[in-house]
Amino acid sequence: MPDYVPTNAASSGVKLDKKTLKSIAARSDRPGLIYIAQWIAFLAATGTLVWASLGSIWMWPAMLLHGIFLTVPAYSFSHETAHGTAFRTRWLNETVLWVTSLLYMEEPLHRRYTHTNHHTHTWWVGKDSQMPFDTPMGFGGWLAEITGFALLRFHMQVFVHLAVGHYTDTMKMVTPEGEFAKMTRNARIMLAIYALIAAAPFLGIWWPVWLIVIPRVLGAPVMLLFTLIQHVELQENSPSILESTRSFRSNWLAEFLYMKMNNHVEHHLYPQVPFHALPKLAEAVQEQLPEPDPGFFKTNLEVMSVVLRRSLGRQTKAATIRQAPHMITDGGPVERVAQRTM
């Protein structure tokens, strides 16, 4: 057996009989293809709004809306395909991983292997390569996280490292041998595409600016509000996913944008379950899990309130979301537990 305990259902004491799990985890192309069709339809509609409003003040809310529909599903689909669970057909999965990672702006295999490591060592300080902020979080950390610039800087550094063939210790730790050449090739191709997009306005071509670049920047904070609440305020260094990870209630729109990853505890317990089957999985294990936190907006407002109070030296007990015991204080200085790894 491995010389570590992977963080999953077994390490969390959650049980599900094999037959039920296998029926829930069954792979299919259909839900992923339907998702692509819906996503393209939404993008066509919001893109039309952007195009129709160019030159007026309405172009900005239109680009925000388009950016949300461009950026959040790109993140979600890149995540799902990194797991290899979006489609039954492997080449389809890998193609969508490449394209959506291009939009998400992370080299696809770096995405896959750092994320595999994140699942194996979820929220373990010094082991989890996807801890995007210091914990406990303060207001400065919150701002750095949700603007998207910290993540963008990290991903650009990764692109440059990979493109020049310089592999960091973290990359070497999480990446299987034999994958680096592919990662370098991917990074060079993707950087060339980004360079073409950046050069387009100088050639008089502006549509990528209105339909991709600015919407991508405007949509990033919404994407990061989704990812922020996956683990923030929860327990570091716990073998139990129930202590380190948060699920939250959701409506159909958030479930669509986030590909049902509001069931995040369930996803970490059984990462082999595809996105479309997560509600079924949640139902099967609900007796063994804590109640999900409130919806996207309420959970994020609570988090913002807590981190602001922490930075002001005030008490940090949240009213409605789950928190690890050490996150709740009466105020005063805060001792850092985890330093960001990305």
């Binding site: 057996m1 491995p2 094999k18 799990l21 296998k22 985890a25 069954a26 792979r27 039954r88 082999q272």
Partner: peptide
């Protein structure tokens, strides 16, 4: 890879 049992793996 890591001496993990394949028993709970998916057959596709």
């Amino acid at each position: 890879h890591e001496e993990q049992s394949l028993e709970d793996g998916l057959v596709i």
